[in-house]
């Protein structure tokens, strides 16, 4: 701007301002189009920043297609699948390579039932490992401890046990105590009765300091029933009962084939439905119907006597109690 020959623009111009002469000198040249490039660079930086913010907010990308044992994620640690040598979560070791866990608890007016499942350790073959004998169980609840009434092994799911306890006034913070049987001792006691004997007992047996009373054995032609209990202070037991009608024979076979009444599991057959053919577990008492094998006793198949074998087994000793929490009550 000039006014009266004075150039105010020149006066206000900073020494650092571009030389207008030089600018003018470039006007004749082809000017670089830097403005779009700068704008593009800024836009690019904004786009990249947006991606960065998105990545931070959303976190690492999950690789949902990964096969087991592999991972294509570059930000998550790879998962290596290895065979377990331990027990599944929640199982407590009750014998070498065998664990047990309580699965449910029912409290009713007639008693308390607890379901227990069993597993082998990882890498072990279930076909080669016995389900451990638990001599007996106790329920620790509300400051009192109650001994089991019975324990039963499931047939459809081998290893599942139902343990029954008497009614308790209150059940708070229950805990199972498993007393493992360490070895077993056995004996077979035989008693012979007249052929017309129908009710016998009580009979008393002693094995390794434990006294067992057979309260009553009722014998019919095709049926029998036996009830027994362990005297207070004794070890738990199992008893297999075999009633033999001496002198009877099945004429359709050449071999001597006396009629028997036996504990159901000795037949290896499901009787009717639902009577477990599995070996009974240790207990302090039992009431059992016996099952017939062979021809019915009667005319043409008379017995000269009745012989009864009681095969008694008790634990050789009992290990220290193993505490199994009861967490999943239903």
């Amino acid at each position: 701007m000039t006014d009266d020959g004075f150039d105010f623009g020149e006066l206000l111009r900073s020494p650092y301002d571009p030389d207008p002469d030089r600018k003018r000198s470039r006007e004749g040249e082809a000017e670089l189009p830097w403005k779009p490039a700068v704008i593009a660079a800024v836009l690019g930086a904004l786009v990249a920043s947006a991606f960065v913010i998105y990545a931070i907010v959303t976190g690492p990308t999950e690789d949902v297609e990964a096969a087991p044992g592999t991972s294509t994620s570059t930000t998550e640690p790879a998962i290596e699948f290895v065979p377990s040598t331990g027990l599944p979560a929640g199982y407590v070791e009750v014998a070498p390579n065998v664990g047990m866990r309580s699965e449910w608890l029912d409290v009713s007016a007639t008693g308390i039932r607890v379901g227990v499942s069993s597993v082998v350790s990882g890498g072990q073959d279930p076909d080669l490992i016995d389900n451990p004998d638990i001599a007996y169980w106790e329920l620790d609840a509300s400051g009192t401890t109650e001994k089991m009434s019975s324990q039963t092994l499931e047939i459809a799911a081998i290893g599942n046990l139902t343990v029954e306890f008497p009614v308790l006034a209150a059940v708070r913070d229950p805990m199972l105590l498993a007393y493992p049987a360490e070895g077993t001792r056995g004996t077979v006691e035989t008693r012979v009765f007249d052929a017309d004997a129908s009710v016998v007992g009580p009979l008393e047996f002693e094995i390794n300091g434990t006294t067992i009373i057979v309260d009553q054995l009722t014998i019919g032609d095709v049926y029998a029933h036996v009830a027994w209990h362990v005297v207070e202070g004794g070890l738990p037991a199992t008893i297999d009962t075999i009633v033999t009608f001496v002198g009877t024979d099945n004429p359709s076979t050449d071999e001597p084939d006396e009629t028997l009444l036996v504990s159901p599991h000795l037949t290896g057959l499901l009787q009717g439905f639902g009577i477990p053919p599995l070996e009974p577990r240790f207990g302090f008492s039992r009431s059992e119907q016996l099952v017939r094998i062979g021809e019915p006793v009667g005319t043409g198949n008379e017995a000269s006597a009745i012989s009864v074998e009681f095969a008694i087994t008790i634990p050789a000793s009992i290990g220290d109690p193993i505490r199994i929490p009861i967490g999943a009550a239903s």
Binding site: V120, N131, E279
Partner: peptide, 10 residues
């Protein structure tokens, strides 16, 4: 099943 079953009768 992982349950131990040796000596379980048929």
């Amino acid at each position: 099943s992982l349950a131990p079953r040796h000596n379980v009768p048929v």
